[in-house]
Design a protein around this nucleic acid. Sequence first.
DNA 1: TATAGTCTTGACAAATATTGGCAAATAAAA
DNA 2: TTTTATTTGCCAATATTTGTCAAGACTATA
Lengths: 97, 97
Amino acid sequence: MATQPGDKIRELRTKQNLLLRQVTSKLDVDTSIISKMDRGERPIKKEQIAILADILKVEKEELHTLWLADQVKDVIKDEPLADKALKSVSKKIKEVK
Amino acid sequence: MATQPGDKIRELRTKQNLLLRQVTSKLDVDTSIISKMDRGERPIKKEQIAILADILKVEKEELHTLWLADQVKDVIKDEPLADKALKSVSKKIKEVK
DNA sequence: TATAGTCTTGACAAATATTGGCAAATAAAA
DNA sequence: TTTTATTTGCCAATATTTGTCAAGACTATA
């Protein structure tokens, strides 16, 4: 299963036999950018997620959650205190609700 | 209780009757910067956390966890899917262990 | 092998964001 | 009030991010 947004995007694209070029046209970037986004070499912008979900006929929410988790992972990777920090944030979120 | 690193730093500093100027000397930045960091107007760098913990005689880990949580919060704030994303990241972390 | 189509890579410039310093304004203390 | 401490807004320097381009690699087909 795809756990990174890039993997998911590639998976969806290839399954639907879409070329990079066909995706870029709506996303308004060069094919090379998408190629890189696919492989996690370039970050994906939040606005692009919505467009991609549209093109690839997948729930925006699914892709967006994947993207958001990836953003978080970027912050806490290599951090020994990651677990503590995550718990504290989760707790704080609940309090707000 | 202080939940943001800035609040904590200010709390510690004032309790110990330290002036901004006295903190800046070891941190090598202008007082205005620390004033801003205190109030969350400027981000605090990771390296500065260790120095601050030193100056303020507090556990590095405590300050660092606070800082990390703040970084995460920055990413997920205003995100309706925050909770889902956080859970998925937590899960992923455990798997790695 | 040759060719055409697709994808990947790296270098580059432009745009954007981040940084800290300074000086003036404000607040607090004496 | 005078002095000291903190805050604020703005600036220039620096760093990061962005997308484009062109060249190279890969794949399939004839």
